[in-house]
Lab assay of single mutants.
Amino acid sequence: MASQGTKRSYEQMETDGERQNATEIRASVGKMIDGIGRFYIQMCTELKLSDYEGRLIQNSLTIERMVLSAFDERRNKYLEEHPSAGKDPKKTGGPIYKRVDRKWMRELVLYDKEEIRRIWRQANNGDDATAGLTHMMIWHSNLNDTTYQRTRALVRTGMDPRMCSLMQGSTLPRRSGAAGAAVKGVGTMVMELIRMIKRGINDRNFWRGENGRKTRSAYERMCNILKGKFQTAAQRAMMDQVRESRNPGNAEIEDLIFLARSALILRGSVAHKSCLPACVYGPAVASGYDFEKEGYSLVGIDPFKLLQNSQVYSLIRPNENPAHKSQLVWMACNSAAFEDLRVLSFIRGTKVSPRGKLSTRGVQIASNENMDAMESSTLELRSRYWAIRTRSGGNTNQQRASAGQISVQPAFSVQRNLPFDKPTIMAAFTGNTEGRTSDMRAEIIRMMEGAKPEEMSFQGRGVFELSDERAANPIVPSFDMSNEGSYFFGDNAEEYDN
Protein backbone atom coordinates (compact mmCIF):
# COMPACT_ATOMS: atom_id res chain seq x y z
CA MET A 1 0.00 0.00 0.00
CA ALA A 2 1.36 3.39 -0.99
CA SER A 3 0.66 5.13 2.31
CA GLN A 4 2.50 2.45 4.27
CA GLY A 5 5.10 4.99 5.38
CA THR A 6 2.55 7.14 7.18
CA LYS A 7 1.21 4.26 9.24
CA ARG A 8 2.77 2.69 12.30
CA SER A 9 3.84 -0.88 11.69
CA TYR A 10 1.77 -3.48 13.46
CA GLU A 11 4.54 -4.27 15.85
CA GLN A 12 4.37 -0.64 16.97
CA MET A 13 0.61 -0.93 17.39
CA GLU A 14 1.19 -4.17 19.24
CA THR A 15 3.56 -2.51 21.69
CA ASP A 16 2.05 0.99 21.92
CA GLY A 17 5.41 2.26 20.67
CA GLU A 18 6.22 5.56 19.07
CA ARG A 19 8.33 5.30 15.92
CA GLN A 20 10.98 2.68 16.51
CA ASN A 21 13.54 1.10 14.26
CA ALA A 22 13.30 -2.58 13.34
CA THR A 23 15.59 -3.74 16.14
CA GLU A 24 13.67 -1.81 18.79
CA ILE A 25 10.39 -3.16 17.46
CA ARG A 26 11.70 -6.73 17.56
CA ALA A 27 12.88 -6.19 21.13
CA SER A 28 9.60 -4.70 22.36
CA VAL A 29 7.54 -7.46 20.74
CA GLY A 30 9.97 -9.95 22.31
CA LYS A 31 9.45 -8.31 25.69
CA MET A 32 5.69 -8.72 25.29
CA ILE A 33 6.11 -12.44 24.47
CA ASP A 34 8.46 -12.88 27.46
CA GLY A 35 5.79 -11.42 29.73
CA ILE A 36 3.10 -13.79 28.46
CA GLY A 37 5.50 -16.72 28.85
CA ARG A 38 6.51 -15.81 32.42
CA PHE A 39 2.86 -15.33 33.38
CA TYR A 40 1.98 -18.74 31.95
CA ILE A 41 4.80 -20.49 33.84
CA GLN A 42 3.65 -18.89 37.09
CA MET A 43 0.01 -19.89 36.49
CA CYS A 44 1.03 -23.50 35.81
CA THR A 45 2.86 -23.48 39.15
CA GLU A 46 -0.18 -22.00 40.95
CA LEU A 47 -2.44 -24.63 39.41
CA LYS A 48 0.09 -27.44 40.02
CA LEU A 49 0.04 -28.52 36.38
CA SER A 50 2.43 -31.17 35.10
CA ASP A 51 4.52 -30.34 32.03
CA TYR A 52 2.05 -32.23 29.81
CA GLU A 53 -1.00 -30.55 31.38
CA GLY A 54 0.68 -27.17 30.94
CA ARG A 55 1.06 -27.85 27.22
CA LEU A 56 -2.64 -28.69 26.84
CA ILE A 57 -4.23 -26.04 24.64
CA GLN A 58 -7.53 -26.17 26.57
CA ASN A 59 -5.69 -25.24 29.80
CA SER A 60 -3.91 -22.47 27.94
CA LEU A 61 -7.24 -21.02 26.75
CA THR A 62 -8.68 -21.06 30.29
CA ILE A 63 -5.62 -19.29 31.72
CA GLU A 64 -5.62 -16.70 28.91
CA ARG A 65 -9.35 -16.09 29.45
CA MET A 66 -8.84 -15.61 33.18
CA VAL A 67 -6.29 -12.85 32.75
CA LEU A 68 -8.33 -11.14 30.02
CA SER A 69 -11.37 -11.20 32.28
CA ALA A 70 -9.33 -9.90 35.24
CA PHE A 71 -8.32 -6.84 33.19
CA ASP A 72 -11.72 -6.21 31.57
CA GLU A 73 -12.41 -3.01 33.51
CA ARG A 74 -15.70 -2.12 31.88
CA ARG A 75 -17.20 -5.53 32.42
CA ASN A 76 -15.85 -5.70 35.97
CA LYS A 77 -17.48 -2.37 36.75
CA TYR A 78 -20.73 -3.52 35.15
CA LEU A 79 -20.71 -6.76 37.17
CA GLU A 80 -20.18 -4.84 40.41
CA GLU A 81 -23.11 -2.51 39.61
CA HIS A 82 -25.45 -5.25 38.31
CA PRO A 83 -24.83 -8.24 40.57
CA SER A 84 -26.19 -11.46 39.09
CA ALA A 85 -27.00 -14.54 41.14
CA GLY A 86 -24.16 -16.98 41.59
CA LYS A 87 -21.52 -14.79 39.91
CA ASP A 88 -18.83 -13.24 42.05
CA PRO A 89 -17.69 -10.09 40.21
CA LYS A 90 -14.32 -10.22 41.96
CA LYS A 91 -13.48 -13.76 40.88
CA THR A 92 -12.55 -15.39 37.60
CA GLY A 93 -11.91 -18.98 36.62
CA GLY A 94 -12.69 -21.81 34.27
CA PRO A 95 -12.10 -25.48 33.53
CA ILE A 96 -8.61 -26.89 34.10
CA TYR A 97 -7.95 -30.39 32.79
CA LYS A 98 -5.74 -32.84 34.66
CA ARG A 99 -4.67 -36.40 34.01
CA VAL A 100 -5.78 -38.59 36.93
CA ASP A 101 -5.50 -42.41 36.89
CA ARG A 102 -5.00 -42.56 33.11
CA LYS A 103 -8.12 -40.43 32.59
CA TRP A 104 -8.74 -36.75 31.90
CA MET A 105 -10.61 -34.94 34.67
CA ARG A 106 -12.15 -31.48 34.58
CA GLU A 107 -11.60 -29.26 37.59
CA LEU A 108 -13.26 -25.84 37.89
CA VAL A 109 -10.87 -23.31 39.41
CA LEU A 110 -11.71 -19.89 40.84
CA TYR A 111 -9.26 -17.06 41.56
CA ASP A 112 -9.47 -13.50 42.79
CA LYS A 113 -9.12 -11.19 39.81
CA GLU A 114 -6.84 -9.06 41.97
CA GLU A 115 -4.52 -12.05 42.43
CA ILE A 116 -4.43 -12.77 38.68
CA ARG A 117 -3.66 -9.11 37.97
CA ARG A 118 -0.83 -9.27 40.50
CA ILE A 119 0.69 -12.36 38.84
CA TRP A 120 0.36 -10.78 35.37
CA ARG A 121 1.98 -7.50 36.44
CA GLN A 122 4.75 -9.34 38.23
CA ALA A 123 5.50 -11.30 35.04
CA ASN A 124 5.55 -8.01 33.11
CA ASN A 125 7.92 -5.99 35.33
CA GLY A 126 5.08 -4.28 37.15
CA ASP A 127 3.34 -2.99 34.00
CA ASP A 128 -0.25 -3.63 32.94
CA ALA A 129 1.29 -4.82 29.65
CA THR A 130 -1.80 -4.10 27.57
CA ALA A 131 0.01 -5.21 24.42
CA GLY A 132 0.31 -8.75 25.79
CA LEU A 133 -3.40 -8.80 26.65
CA THR A 134 -4.31 -7.64 23.14
CA HIS A 135 -2.02 -10.29 21.71
CA MET A 136 -4.01 -12.99 23.51
CA MET A 137 -7.28 -11.44 22.33
CA ILE A 138 -6.06 -11.64 18.73
CA TRP A 139 -5.09 -15.30 19.21
CA HIS A 140 -8.62 -16.04 20.48
CA SER A 141 -10.06 -14.06 17.58
CA ASN A 142 -7.96 -15.97 15.03
CA LEU A 143 -9.09 -19.25 16.59
CA ASN A 144 -12.74 -18.18 16.36
CA ASP A 145 -12.25 -17.11 12.73
CA THR A 146 -10.95 -20.58 11.90
CA THR A 147 -13.59 -22.45 13.87
CA TYR A 148 -16.85 -20.64 13.14
CA GLN A 149 -18.50 -19.14 10.11
CA ARG A 150 -20.39 -15.99 11.07
CA THR A 151 -23.46 -16.66 8.91
CA ARG A 152 -26.00 -15.51 11.45
CA ALA A 153 -24.18 -12.30 12.30
CA LEU A 154 -23.84 -11.45 8.60
CA VAL A 155 -27.50 -12.10 7.85
CA ARG A 156 -28.65 -10.08 10.87
CA THR A 157 -26.88 -6.98 9.59
CA GLY A 158 -28.21 -7.46 6.06
CA MET A 159 -25.01 -8.83 4.55
CA ASP A 160 -24.55 -11.98 2.48
CA PRO A 161 -23.09 -15.01 4.33
CA ARG A 162 -20.85 -15.61 1.32
CA MET A 163 -18.94 -12.48 2.30
CA CYS A 164 -17.37 -14.33 5.24
CA SER A 165 -13.82 -13.70 3.96
CA LEU A 166 -14.28 -10.08 5.10
CA MET A 167 -15.06 -11.03 8.70
CA GLN A 168 -11.61 -11.37 10.24
CA GLY A 169 -11.58 -10.23 13.87
CA SER A 170 -15.37 -10.16 14.18
CA THR A 171 -15.22 -11.55 17.73
CA LEU A 172 -12.50 -9.18 18.99
CA PRO A 173 -13.59 -7.19 22.04
CA ARG A 174 -14.01 -3.44 21.64
CA ARG A 175 -11.07 -2.76 23.92
CA SER A 176 -8.50 -4.36 21.63
CA GLY A 177 -6.97 -1.01 20.64
CA ALA A 178 -4.96 -0.12 17.53
CA ALA A 179 -3.50 -3.61 17.16
CA GLY A 180 -7.04 -5.02 17.20
CA ALA A 181 -8.31 -2.48 14.66
CA ALA A 182 -5.46 -3.38 12.30
CA VAL A 183 -6.52 -7.03 12.05
CA LYS A 184 -10.24 -6.40 11.61
CA GLY A 185 -11.60 -7.20 8.16
CA VAL A 186 -13.70 -4.79 6.08
CA GLY A 187 -16.85 -6.80 6.86
CA THR A 188 -16.19 -6.63 10.59
CA MET A 189 -15.92 -2.84 10.51
CA VAL A 190 -19.03 -2.58 8.32
CA MET A 191 -20.96 -4.79 10.72
CA GLU A 192 -19.93 -2.71 13.74
CA LEU A 193 -21.00 0.48 11.95
CA ILE A 194 -24.33 -0.97 10.81
CA ARG A 195 -25.14 -2.08 14.35
CA MET A 196 -24.41 1.43 15.54
CA ILE A 197 -26.57 3.07 12.85
CA LYS A 198 -29.44 0.67 13.60
CA ARG A 199 -29.32 1.64 17.26
CA GLY A 200 -29.51 5.26 16.19
CA ILE A 201 -32.57 4.53 14.06
CA ASN A 202 -34.34 2.74 16.91
CA ASP A 203 -33.28 4.98 19.78
CA ARG A 204 -33.91 8.69 19.28
CA ASN A 205 -31.44 9.73 21.94
CA PHE A 206 -28.54 7.66 20.67
CA TRP A 207 -26.80 10.58 18.93
CA ARG A 208 -28.02 13.24 21.38
CA GLY A 209 -26.72 14.88 24.51
CA GLU A 210 -23.41 14.36 26.28
CA ASN A 211 -23.33 10.62 25.52
CA GLY A 212 -24.32 11.28 21.92
CA ARG A 213 -21.16 13.31 21.42
CA LYS A 214 -19.04 10.36 22.54
CA THR A 215 -21.10 8.07 20.33
CA ARG A 216 -20.58 10.38 17.37
CA SER A 217 -16.82 10.52 17.81
CA ALA A 218 -16.70 6.71 18.12
CA TYR A 219 -18.73 6.49 14.88
CA GLU A 220 -16.34 8.82 13.05
CA ARG A 221 -13.31 7.00 14.41
CA MET A 222 -14.66 3.65 13.17
CA CYS A 223 -15.41 5.22 9.77
CA ASN A 224 -11.81 6.42 9.56
CA ILE A 225 -10.45 2.98 10.48
CA LEU A 226 -12.55 1.44 7.72
CA LYS A 227 -11.59 4.18 5.25
CA GLY A 228 -7.92 3.42 5.95
CA LYS A 229 -8.45 -0.19 4.94
CA PHE A 230 -9.67 0.69 1.44
CA GLN A 231 -7.07 1.04 -1.30
CA THR A 232 -9.01 2.98 -3.97
CA ALA A 233 -9.96 6.65 -3.99
CA ALA A 234 -13.61 5.99 -4.83
CA GLN A 235 -14.09 3.63 -1.90
CA ARG A 236 -12.45 6.15 0.42
CA ALA A 237 -14.57 9.01 -0.91
CA MET A 238 -17.67 6.97 -0.21
CA MET A 239 -16.47 6.41 3.37
CA ASP A 240 -16.10 10.18 3.77
CA GLN A 241 -19.77 10.50 2.79
CA VAL A 242 -20.81 7.91 5.36
CA ARG A 243 -18.71 9.56 8.06
CA GLU A 244 -19.98 13.08 7.40
CA SER A 245 -23.66 12.13 7.34
CA ARG A 246 -25.66 14.40 9.68
CA ASN A 247 -28.01 11.67 10.76
CA PRO A 248 -26.81 8.21 9.75
CA GLY A 249 -29.64 5.97 8.57
CA ASN A 250 -30.64 3.48 5.89
CA ALA A 251 -28.81 5.31 3.11
CA GLU A 252 -25.55 4.85 5.04
CA ILE A 253 -26.33 1.19 5.69
CA GLU A 254 -26.86 0.71 1.94
CA ASP A 255 -23.56 2.46 1.18
CA LEU A 256 -21.70 0.33 3.73
CA ILE A 257 -23.10 -2.94 2.37
CA PHE A 258 -22.18 -1.78 -1.14
CA LEU A 259 -18.64 -1.07 0.05
CA ALA A 260 -18.39 -4.44 1.81
CA ARG A 261 -19.39 -6.23 -1.40
CA SER A 262 -16.93 -4.18 -3.41
CA ALA A 263 -14.17 -5.35 -1.04
CA LEU A 264 -14.62 -8.91 -2.32
CA ILE A 265 -12.83 -7.76 -5.47
CA LEU A 266 -11.19 -4.43 -4.54
CA ARG A 267 -9.75 -5.87 -1.35
CA GLY A 268 -9.02 -3.88 1.76
CA SER A 269 -5.69 -4.01 3.55
CA VAL A 270 -6.04 -6.05 6.69
CA ALA A 271 -3.10 -6.98 8.92
CA HIS A 272 -2.25 -10.60 9.71
CA LYS A 273 -0.31 -11.56 12.81
CA SER A 274 0.73 -14.94 14.06
CA CYS A 275 -0.42 -14.95 17.66
CA LEU A 276 0.27 -18.24 19.44
CA PRO A 277 -1.32 -19.71 22.57
CA ALA A 278 0.38 -18.90 25.88
CA CYS A 279 1.33 -22.58 26.29
CA VAL A 280 3.78 -22.12 23.38
CA TYR A 281 5.48 -19.05 24.88
CA GLY A 282 5.64 -20.46 28.43
CA PRO A 283 7.80 -23.54 27.75
CA ALA A 284 10.05 -21.50 25.40
CA VAL A 285 10.74 -18.97 28.16
CA ALA A 286 11.14 -21.80 30.69
CA SER A 287 13.79 -23.40 28.49
CA GLY A 288 15.84 -20.22 28.82
CA TYR A 289 15.04 -18.49 25.52
CA ASP A 290 15.17 -14.70 25.90
CA PHE A 291 12.66 -13.22 23.45
CA GLU A 292 13.53 -9.62 24.27
CA LYS A 293 17.25 -10.18 23.70
CA GLU A 294 16.78 -12.29 20.56
CA GLY A 295 13.98 -10.11 19.17
CA TYR A 296 10.69 -11.40 17.78
CA SER A 297 8.31 -10.52 14.96
CA LEU A 298 4.70 -11.57 14.47
CA VAL A 299 4.90 -11.28 10.70
CA GLY A 300 8.13 -13.04 9.76
CA ILE A 301 9.82 -16.38 10.32
CA ASP A 302 9.78 -16.27 14.15
CA PRO A 303 6.35 -17.85 14.80
CA PHE A 304 7.16 -20.61 12.29
CA LYS A 305 10.44 -21.41 14.05
CA LEU A 306 8.73 -21.38 17.43
CA LEU A 307 5.98 -23.77 16.28
CA GLN A 308 8.61 -26.00 14.64
CA ASN A 309 10.07 -26.67 18.10
CA SER A 310 6.94 -26.70 20.25
CA GLN A 311 4.93 -29.56 21.70
CA VAL A 312 1.25 -28.65 22.13
CA TYR A 313 -1.44 -31.15 23.06
CA SER A 314 -5.20 -31.05 22.73
CA LEU A 315 -8.12 -32.98 24.14
CA ILE A 316 -9.86 -34.95 21.39
CA ARG A 317 -13.52 -35.97 21.49
CA PRO A 318 -14.38 -39.58 20.62
CA ASN A 319 -15.31 -39.01 16.95
CA GLU A 320 -12.84 -36.26 16.12
CA ASN A 321 -9.84 -36.57 13.83
CA PRO A 322 -6.61 -35.36 15.50
CA ALA A 323 -5.12 -34.36 12.13
CA HIS A 324 -8.15 -32.16 11.48
CA LYS A 325 -7.90 -30.61 14.94
CA SER A 326 -4.26 -29.85 14.13
CA GLN A 327 -5.20 -28.12 10.88
CA LEU A 328 -7.73 -25.94 12.70
CA VAL A 329 -5.17 -24.77 15.26
CA TRP A 330 -2.39 -24.43 12.65
CA MET A 331 -4.58 -22.07 10.61
CA ALA A 332 -5.44 -20.07 13.73
CA CYS A 333 -1.78 -19.77 14.72
CA ASN A 334 -0.97 -18.41 11.27
CA SER A 335 -3.96 -16.06 11.13
CA ALA A 336 -5.00 -17.79 7.93
CA ALA A 337 -8.73 -18.50 8.19
CA PHE A 338 -9.51 -16.59 4.99
CA GLU A 339 -6.40 -17.40 2.99
CA ASP A 340 -6.50 -19.47 -0.19
CA LEU A 341 -6.28 -23.15 0.80
CA ARG A 342 -3.90 -23.90 -2.07
CA VAL A 343 -1.40 -21.37 -0.71
CA LEU A 344 -1.80 -22.86 2.77
CA SER A 345 -1.38 -26.44 1.54
CA PHE A 346 1.90 -25.49 -0.13
CA ILE A 347 3.27 -23.68 2.93
CA ARG A 348 2.19 -26.36 5.36
CA GLY A 349 3.35 -29.21 3.16
CA THR A 350 0.16 -31.21 3.73
CA LYS A 351 -3.26 -30.71 2.21
CA VAL A 352 -5.37 -28.11 3.98
CA SER A 353 -9.08 -28.95 3.65
CA PRO A 354 -12.22 -26.81 3.76
CA ARG A 355 -13.94 -26.42 7.14
CA GLY A 356 -16.90 -28.57 6.17
CA LYS A 357 -14.64 -31.55 5.45
CA LEU A 358 -12.99 -31.49 8.87
CA SER A 359 -14.15 -33.97 11.51
CA THR A 360 -13.55 -31.66 14.42
CA ARG A 361 -15.53 -29.27 16.54
CA GLY A 362 -14.07 -26.25 18.31
CA VAL A 363 -11.05 -26.49 20.58
CA GLN A 364 -12.93 -25.53 23.73
CA ILE A 365 -14.82 -28.21 25.62
CA ALA A 366 -18.26 -27.28 26.97
CA SER A 367 -18.90 -27.78 30.69
CA ASN A 368 -21.61 -30.36 30.02
CA GLU A 369 -19.47 -32.60 27.81
CA ASN A 370 -18.63 -36.01 29.20
CA MET A 371 -14.93 -36.40 30.06
CA ASP A 372 -14.94 -40.21 30.27
CA ALA A 373 -14.15 -40.87 26.64
CA MET A 374 -11.77 -37.89 26.19
CA GLU A 375 -8.37 -38.68 24.75
CA SER A 376 -5.53 -36.29 24.07
CA SER A 377 -3.11 -36.06 21.18
CA THR A 378 -0.24 -33.95 19.88
CA LEU A 379 -1.16 -31.04 17.62
CA GLU A 380 0.97 -31.05 14.45
CA LEU A 381 1.72 -27.33 14.05
CA ARG A 382 4.89 -27.51 11.95
CA SER A 383 5.22 -26.21 8.40
CA ARG A 384 7.25 -27.14 5.33
CA TYR A 385 8.00 -23.52 4.34
CA TRP A 386 7.51 -20.09 5.84
CA ALA A 387 6.19 -16.92 4.23
CA ILE A 388 5.86 -13.27 5.15
CA ARG A 389 2.45 -12.17 6.43
CA THR A 390 0.78 -9.44 4.39
CA ARG A 391 -1.45 -6.52 5.12
CA SER A 392 -2.27 -5.68 1.55
CA GLY A 393 -5.35 -7.26 0.07
CA GLY A 394 -3.40 -8.01 -3.11
CA ASN A 395 -4.78 -7.18 -6.53
CA THR A 396 -7.61 -9.22 -7.79
CA ASN A 397 -8.47 -12.12 -9.89
CA GLN A 398 -11.05 -14.49 -11.08
CA GLN A 399 -11.11 -18.14 -10.21
CA ARG A 400 -13.59 -20.96 -9.98
CA ALA A 401 -15.36 -20.18 -6.73
CA SER A 402 -17.74 -21.97 -4.46
CA ALA A 403 -21.25 -21.99 -3.14
CA GLY A 404 -19.92 -20.90 0.24
CA GLN A 405 -17.16 -18.35 0.50
CA ILE A 406 -16.75 -16.35 -2.72
CA SER A 407 -13.46 -14.57 -2.13
CA VAL A 408 -10.31 -14.76 -0.01
CA GLN A 409 -8.34 -12.33 2.16
CA PRO A 410 -4.65 -13.16 1.70
CA ALA A 411 -2.63 -13.77 4.86
CA PHE A 412 0.69 -14.45 3.14
CA SER A 413 2.64 -12.39 0.69
CA VAL A 414 2.90 -15.15 -1.92
CA GLN A 415 2.38 -14.92 -5.69
CA ARG A 416 -0.92 -16.39 -6.85
CA ASN A 417 -4.18 -15.82 -8.67
CA LEU A 418 -6.70 -14.62 -6.12
CA PRO A 419 -9.91 -16.60 -6.34
CA PHE A 420 -13.28 -14.89 -6.46
CA ASP A 421 -16.45 -15.70 -8.28
CA LYS A 422 -16.88 -12.61 -10.43
CA PRO A 423 -20.34 -13.32 -11.90
CA THR A 424 -21.74 -14.02 -8.43
CA ILE A 425 -20.21 -10.88 -6.96
CA MET A 426 -21.15 -8.63 -9.89
CA ALA A 427 -24.75 -9.89 -9.85
CA ALA A 428 -25.15 -8.05 -6.56
CA PHE A 429 -24.34 -4.74 -8.25
CA THR A 430 -27.15 -4.46 -10.77
CA GLY A 431 -29.16 -1.29 -11.01
CA ASN A 432 -28.63 0.45 -7.73
CA THR A 433 -26.36 3.34 -8.69
CA GLU A 434 -28.64 6.27 -7.99
CA GLY A 435 -28.51 8.61 -5.03
CA ARG A 436 -25.81 10.90 -3.72
CA THR A 437 -23.01 8.36 -4.07
CA SER A 438 -23.91 7.42 -7.66
CA ASP A 439 -20.68 8.64 -9.28
CA MET A 440 -18.54 6.82 -6.73
CA ARG A 441 -20.62 3.67 -7.07
CA ALA A 442 -20.29 3.76 -10.84
CA GLU A 443 -16.53 4.23 -10.54
CA ILE A 444 -16.21 1.32 -8.07
CA ILE A 445 -18.27 -0.98 -10.30
CA ARG A 446 -16.14 0.01 -13.29
CA MET A 447 -12.97 -0.93 -11.40
CA MET A 448 -14.47 -4.24 -10.33
CA GLU A 449 -15.48 -5.09 -13.86
CA GLY A 450 -11.98 -4.27 -15.02
CA ALA A 451 -10.35 -6.74 -12.63
CA LYS A 452 -8.49 -9.15 -14.92
CA PRO A 453 -8.43 -12.91 -14.40
CA GLU A 454 -4.89 -13.37 -15.65
CA GLU A 455 -3.24 -10.87 -13.29
CA MET A 456 -0.95 -12.32 -10.67
CA SER A 457 -1.10 -10.97 -7.17
CA PHE A 458 2.05 -10.46 -5.06
CA GLN A 459 4.18 -10.78 -8.20
CA GLY A 460 7.42 -12.68 -7.61
CA ARG A 461 6.77 -13.14 -3.90
CA GLY A 462 7.51 -16.62 -2.73
CA VAL A 463 7.81 -18.88 0.26
CA PHE A 464 11.10 -19.71 1.97
CA GLU A 465 12.86 -22.75 3.38
CA LEU A 466 12.89 -22.71 7.18
CA SER A 467 16.70 -22.55 7.02
CA ASP A 468 16.45 -19.31 4.99
CA GLU A 469 15.97 -16.87 7.86
CA ARG A 470 16.97 -13.81 5.84
CA ALA A 471 14.38 -14.60 3.15
CA ALA A 472 17.14 -14.61 0.53
CA ASN A 473 15.87 -17.32 -1.84
CA PRO A 474 12.17 -17.06 -2.62
CA ILE A 475 10.50 -20.18 -3.99
CA VAL A 476 7.49 -19.26 -6.11
CA PRO A 477 5.05 -22.06 -5.34
CA SER A 478 2.97 -24.10 -7.74
CA PHE A 479 -0.66 -24.73 -6.86
CA ASP A 480 -2.96 -27.61 -7.58
CA MET A 481 -5.80 -25.71 -9.23
CA SER A 482 -8.11 -28.72 -9.09
CA ASN A 483 -8.41 -28.18 -5.34
CA GLU A 484 -10.88 -25.86 -3.72
CA GLY A 485 -9.59 -22.41 -2.73
CA SER A 486 -12.12 -21.40 -0.09
CA TYR A 487 -12.08 -22.67 3.48
CA PHE A 488 -15.77 -22.08 4.19
CA PHE A 489 -16.72 -23.79 0.94
CA GLY A 490 -20.46 -24.66 0.77
CA ASP A 491 -20.00 -24.98 4.41
CA ASN A 492 -21.57 -26.35 7.56
CA ALA A 493 -19.27 -24.95 10.25
CA GLU A 494 -20.88 -24.30 13.60
CA GLU A 495 -22.13 -20.83 14.34
CA TYR A 496 -20.18 -18.68 16.80
CA ASP A 497 -22.15 -18.12 20.01
CA ASN A 498 -20.90 -15.80 22.71
Rank of each mutant, 00 (worst) to 15 (best):
M1N: 10
S3P: 00
Q4A: 06
R8N: 00
Y10G: 01
Y10I: 14
E11T: 06
M13A: 06
E14W: 08
T15A: 00
G17T: 08
G17M: 15
R19D: 09
Q20E: 01
N21P: 13
A22Y: 01
E24I: 12
I33L: 15
I36W: 07
G37S: 15
F39N: 14
Y40P: 05
Q42F: 04
Q42L: 03
M43K: 14
C44V: 07
E46I: 11
E46C: 13
E46R: 13
L47N: 05
L49N: 09
D51H: 02
Y52C: 03
Y52W: 08
E53M: 10
G54N: 11
G54E: 12
R55L: 14
I57A: 12
I57C: 07
Q58F: 07
S60F: 02
L61N: 12
L61G: 11
I63A: 15
R65S: 12
M66R: 06
V67H: 10
L68D: 04
A70L: 01
D72C: 12
R74K: 14
R75E: 04
N76I: 14
N76C: 12
K77C: 13
Y78C: 07
L79C: 12
L79I: 14
E80L: 08
H82G: 00
H82Q: 15
A85T: 14
A85I: 11
K87E: 12
D88R: 00
D88M: 06
D88T: 03
P89Q: 01
K90L: 09
K91Q: 04
G94M: 12
G94W: 06
G94I: 12
P95R: 07
P95G: 15
I96G: 02
K98T: 13
K98E: 03
K103C: 07
W104E: 03
W104I: 14
W104T: 09
E107D: 15
L108S: 11
V109Q: 11
V109N: 00
L110T: 07
Y111P: 04
D112E: 12
K113F: 11
E114S: 03
E114M: 06
I119L: 09
I119A: 04
W120V: 06
Q122L: 14
G126N: 12
D127K: 11
D128P: 12
A129T: 13
A131C: 07
A131K: 00
G132E: 05
T134Q: 03
H135N: 11
I138S: 05
I138H: 02
H140P: 04
S141P: 12
S141A: 07
N144K: 08
D145M: 12
D145E: 12
D145S: 05
D145N: 04
T147P: 04
T147D: 05
Y148D: 08
Q149S: 08
R150P: 12
T151W: 05
A153N: 04
A153Q: 11
L154E: 06
L154H: 00
G158T: 10
M159T: 02
P161D: 02
C164R: 01
S165K: 00
L166K: 04
L166N: 03
L166S: 13
L166R: 00
S170I: 05
S170E: 06
L172H: 04
P173T: 10
P173I: 03
G177Y: 03
A181G: 13
V183I: 15
G185V: 04
V186T: 08
V186H: 15
M189A: 06
M189Q: 14
M191W: 10
E192D: 10
I194T: 12
I194Y: 03
I197Q: 04
K198G: 05
G200R: 02
G200M: 09
I201F: 04
I201S: 07
D203H: 03
N205R: 03
F206A: 08
G209R: 06
G209P: 03
G209I: 01
E210Y: 01
E210T: 10
N211R: 00
N211Q: 04
N211W: 11
K214E: 03
K214P: 02
R216Q: 04
S217F: 06
S217Y: 10
Y219A: 10
Y219N: 08
E220T: 08
E220S: 01
R221T: 03
M222K: 07
C223S: 10
C223M: 13
N224P: 06
N224I: 08
L226A: 07
L226E: 09
K227T: 09
K229N: 14
Q231W: 01
A233K: 02
Q235D: 04
Q235T: 14
Q235L: 14
R236E: 12
A237E: 05
M238E: 08
M239A: 15
M239K: 05
Q241N: 07
S245C: 12
R246I: 02
N247Y: 06
N247G: 13
G249K: 07
G249F: 04
G249P: 08
D255F: 04
L256N: 13
L256F: 04
I257A: 05
L264G: 09
R267H: 05
R267V: 00
G268C: 13
S269V: 07
S269W: 10
V270P: 01
A271M: 13
H272S: 08
K273V: 05
S274P: 03
L276V: 12
P277F: 05
C279L: 13
G282A: 15
P283A: 14
A284W: 14
S287N: 15
S287C: 09
S287K: 06
E292T: 03
Y296A: 15
I301M: 12
D302A: 13
F304G: 10
F304D: 02
K305I: 09
L306F: 03
Q311I: 03
V312F: 12
Y313L: 07
Y313F: 11
I316R: 02
P318N: 03
E320M: 11
N321M: 10
N321K: 15
N321F: 07
N321T: 01
A323K: 00
V329A: 05
V329E: 01
W330T: 01
N334H: 15
N334P: 06
S335D: 07
A336S: 09
A337Y: 09
F338I: 10
D340Y: 09
R342F: 06
V343A: 11
L344P: 08
S345I: 11
S345G: 14
F346Q: 09
F346I: 09
R348N: 07
G349V: 11
G349Y: 06
G349S: 11
G349I: 03
T350F: 15
K351A: 09
K351S: 09
K351W: 04
K351F: 15
V352C: 07
R355F: 08
K357Q: 11
K357H: 08
S359L: 11
R361D: 03
S367I: 00
N368S: 10
N368K: 13
N368I: 13
N370D: 11
N370F: 10
N370S: 06
M371N: 03
D372I: 07
D372S: 08
A373T: 13
M374S: 02
E375G: 11
S376V: 11
S376L: 04
S377H: 03
L379T: 08
R382D: 03
S383H: 02
R384M: 05
W386C: 06
A387N: 03
I388T: 09
R389I: 01
G393S: 15
G393R: 08
G394I: 13
G394H: 09
N395S: 14
N397H: 12
Q398Y: 00
R400V: 02
G404Q: 05
G404A: 14
I406H: 13
P410Q: 08
P410E: 00
A411C: 15
A411T: 13
F412L: 15
S413V: 07
V414E: 01
V414A: 08
R416I: 04
R416L: 04
L418S: 02
L418T: 08
L418F: 02
F420H: 14
D421P: 00
K422N: 13
P423R: 15
I425F: 00
I425M: 06
M426T: 14
M426E: 00
A427E: 00
T430A: 15
G431Y: 15
T433S: 09
T433E: 09
E434W: 06
G435R: 11
R436C: 03
T437F: 02
S438E: 00
S438L: 01
D439F: 00
M440T: 08
R441S: 13
A442Q: 01
A442E: 02
E443T: 03
I444K: 07
I444L: 14
I444H: 01
R446N: 08
R446E: 15
R446W: 00
G450M: 11
A451S: 00
K452T: 09
S457P: 09
R461C: 04
R461P: 02
F464V: 02
E465F: 01
S467T: 10
A472T: 15
P474F: 03
I475W: 02
I475S: 03
V476Y: 12
P477C: 02
P477N: 02
S478F: 14
S478L: 13
F479I: 15
F479H: 13
M481I: 05
S482R: 05
Y487M: 06
F488E: 02
G490K: 09
D491F: 03
A493F: 05
Y496C: 08
D497K: 00
N498Q: 10
N498P: 00
N498A: 06
